[in-house]
């Protein structure tokens, strides 16, 4: 069983590395696929593992988006150096924002936290579309990639692949340590965790800062890949990316390591393959999908497999959405 899993990962790694050469026409789509994996993974760190279901993580993505573009605009440096510097600037800003916002917002419990982050995400988009320094509602253009469009596709493909893999490995290491156990304890019963002396706020803020770091880097790369940054549709795109990251994590199985990865791949491929046929109705379909998944399939793919074949998939970390309790 272990060998089989190892073989699957190895084949997956080879396919991932070779994808730009196997299917050169879809390289941009595959780049986005890895970004989706990253988005779902970072959402699950707070949402699935700690039970703090956020609708506002897109804020950190947007900060990264804008920071990178502003740095490129203000510094007269070469494209890649500018992207690197911009990425770092965005990372610092986003992590600081997570620290400041998190220290307040993460004290909110359950549904209050969810609605508050929903407000936070929309507020960020609205504020950005009124701020002239970053182009207000008109948006900003990111510098053009110095090379062929094909080269740009390959570059961003590997950039997102590296980001997603580093994110996955970081979270895997975290979950295997004390951090993962405390995160799950907070999810299951935060009052109990406090009564046992765990510094829960520290853990929650730290988790949000880690998520913010990866999200800001993804945002910086995404803004450059798109070449244009719109406040509501690209940077603080709560309507699309912001909702999708929640949906992908739950679809795959929230609170599991592989769930967000599986969910992101299934969701993104489905979207790419089928949604063009829906002609404008795809966002209606997205809403229906959310309702159906949340109401009828909350355990997700990995959770379903773990219930079906516990000896094979049984990490026994089934979705945080299944337990009927109204106490908190």
């Amino acid at each position: 069983m272990r060998a089989l899993g190892f073989a699957a990962v190895a084949v997956g790694a080879i396919l991932a590395l070779a994808a730009p050469f196997l299917l050169p026409n879809y390289v941009a789509q595959f780049a986005i696929l890895w970004m989706m994996v990253l988005l779902a993974l970072t959402w699950d760190l707070i949402g699935g593992q700690m039970g703090y279901n956020s609708f506002g993580n897109i804020v950190f993505f947007g900060i990264g988006c804008y920071a990178a573009a502003v740095v490129q605009r203000s510094l007269d440096v070469e494209y890649f150096a500018g992207l690197a510097l911009g990425g770092i600037a965005g990372l610092v800003l986003a992590v600081a924002a997570a620290l400041v916002l998190g220290s307040g917002i993460l004290r909110l419990r359950g549904q209050y936290f969810a609605i508050c982050t929903l407000g936070l995400g929309v507020a960020a988009g609205e504020l950005a579309s009124g701020w002239d320094f970053i182009g207000a509602g008109g948006g900003m253009t990111a510098p053009v990639y110095p090379g062929s469009p094909r080269g740009a596709g390959v570059f961003f493909y590997y950039l997102f692949l590296v980001l997603a893999v580093v994110c996955f490995l970081t979270l895997r290491a975290l979950y295997a340590r004390r951090f993962g156990l405390v995160a799950n304890a907070i999810r299951d019963d935060e009052d109990k965790a406090e009564a046992m002396g765990l510094p829960t706020t520290q853990y929650k803020v730290a988790a949000w800062m880690i998520a913010a770091a990866f999200l800001s880097l993804a945002g910086a790369a995404y803004g450059h890949l798109q070449g244009f940054i719109d406040p509501r549709d690209i940077a603080f795109s709560g309507e699309t990316l912001g909702v999708w990251m929640v949906l992908m994590a739950i679809l795959g199985g929230s609170g599991t390591l592989w769930g967000p990865v599986v969910g992101a791949i299934v969701f993104d491929v489905t979207q790419e393959v089928f949604w063009t046929y829906l002609l404008g109705w795809q966002r209606v379909a997205l809403g229906v999908l959310i309702v159906v998944i949340v109401v009828f399939f909350p355990q997700g793919i990995i959770g379903f497999l773990a219930e079906r074949w516990p000896e094979r998939f049984g990490s026994r970390r089934v979705s945080s959405l299944l337990v009927p309790d109204k106490v908190s």
Binding site: L181, N184, D189, K192, V318, V323
Partner: peptide
Amino acid sequence: RVYRRMTCMQ
């Protein structure tokens, strides 16, 4: 109050 979705060892 115990952490309901974690194992006894956890």
